[in-house]
Amino acid sequence: MNILNIITGNVARGPQTVRFPGREAPAAAYRGSVTMDAAKCLACGICDYVCVSRAIAVTPGAASCEWTYDPGRCTYCGRCVDHCPVAAVTQAGDRGDSYARSGAQRATVTVPYPACPQCGRPAMPYNEAVLGAAFGDVSAELRERIHLCERCRRRATTAALKANFGAAAETGRSDDGR
């Protein structure tokens, strides 16, 4: 009569029901809704690429990038957090609020493109860690150029190339002994 042991155990222990709102806090690793820190964002769009349910959308604009997130679509898989190269995307550790209307918690974060130090036009955001991962040893020249907007960077690169070619051409000409 083992079932009687279970029953007497239950009676002796008392009800196990947790009365509202006495709910246990979620585990430390809990995967809640996603937030994004615009200050860290590179606007690379990886979170959009890995998002299975299209809860995250990254829409690049002229001077800034729109990052939208809809918890109603989110599957809370955490892929965006795992794959973000600069840890700009994080997940809340709590269960969040309930809501009644579809899309009520949709969030939009605008990631402004920093101004180009030369011309003032929008340039792409940059991050030291990613720069290191992409190029290994970062030369002073590269670090200086990375802040520029695309146009200024192209110009700077062309100028540098021209300068190099020019020097080579100068020496070549002199070597020619014409």
Binding site: I7, N10, V11, R13, G14, P15, Q16, T17, R19
Partner: peptide
């Protein structure tokens, strides 16, 4: 029944 199952009832 509830108490035997560990519920409030």
């Amino acid at each position: 029944n509830a108490r035997a199952q560990g519920r409030i009832g």
